[in-house]
Design a binder for these strands. Structure first.
Lengths: 183, 183
DNA sequence: TCTTTTAGTAGCGACTCGAAACTATTGCAA
DNA sequence: TTGCAATAGTTTCGAGTCGCTACTAAAAGA
């Protein structure tokens, strides 16, 4: 008997937080799924904003992600951009209207704000550790920033991705990338 | 401009963990909602296992909770117990079959297991802090254990709840109570 | 006693989600 | 080069969740 109690309680707490969060007033016209997709797109770099990437990040299917993104596009919170190199693929950019939704405080961020910085820092690092472990076990992608990626190269002031063979802007490099692999 | 970035990232991480968790193989025949309800019932004392308590804990409505519980009862993971004192109310007890489902390891507990105890402890305390803040803002109940409740009284070896005016067993006192109020 | 409140349920509609089928495009290989 | 397989995205369908409203029964209060 391995004393699973502590871990079970922890799992329940995680679940409860997400339920409380979902029960909060939604951010205006968005439901939790749409909000999560929008928040991801806002933090993802230009190589990582296709439906399949969203599906991968949110641990859902391409079909479901497609529906969610279409709904967001219909409301003009994101804009569809067709790829020129690969005519199958599509990228979604967050519009200014979409960005403004993300700025609005939510019940969760309000609550987080009243916690000491020490707690939120520990919280963040624990969450990242847990996510890494889960992804390791299910073989998912890590979705990190270029800075910590093994394909990231820097010479002088020029940034470069050796996997996609493209130069990166400074803003590219601090966004989430689908191809990320820890160094 | 208050630097909301840190908190937004944190909110996204919380959301992502719960999505990854929901995408894991469900625990056998249960979907996430049913599993959450079952897990709550297993940790709640006998005064806190009614549909309305479940609804309150999971931040949903009585109607939705009622459906979820009926589904669990249909599969014999919980058993309905009618109250004798109040003929309107019902209590659900977790059956042995139900308990065995909770013992099965999940993707999340597996991942948690490979984290150091220090991390999981910090995690747990951060989650509790956050939940307390959210509940404070929305005026919800805290659902704590009798040990930390202002209505809990102890004389010699006898435990007593001064709100419900009933004696408590040792196991009652370490379970979650709907009436909990911090001392 | 009459009214109000509370506990639980049922039915409805909106919506999410996953699975599977489908189209279009690309890549690979004989 | 031609043909097959893999990939990107979408669509459709069915199961299920969820909130809302209306409802019944029981309890509480005036």
């Amino acid at each position: 008997m391995k004393e699973p109690n502590h871990l079970r309680v922890l799992r329940d707490l995680i679940d409860r937080v997400s339920r409380l969060s979902a029960a909060e007033d939604w951010n205006g016209p968005l439901n939790p799924s749409q909000f999560a997709a929008l928040a991801y797109l806002a933090r993802a770099n230009r190589f990582s904003r296709a439906p399949s990437h969203v599906a991968d990040y949110l641990a859902t299917t391409r079909g479901t992600a497609s529906q969610t993104l279409k709904a967001l596009a219909r409301k003009d919170f994101i804009a569809e951009v067709k790829s020129e190199t690969d005519k199958r693929s599509i990228r979604y950019d967050v519009t200014d209207t979409g960005k403004s939704l993300l700025d609005a405080p939510s019940g969760v961020t309000d609550a987080l704000e009243s916690l000491p910085r020490k707690t939120t820092d520990a919280f963040e690092s624990a969450l990242k550790d847990l996510i890494r472990e889960i992804l390791k076990k299910r073989g998912g992608r890590t979705f990190g920033m270029c800075q910590t990626c093994r394909h990231h190269q820097q010479s002088d002031d020029d940034l470069f991705c050796s996997l996609l063979n493209v130069p990166l802007s400074a803003s590219d490099a601090v966004e989430i990338c689908h191809e990320h692999q820890a160094a």
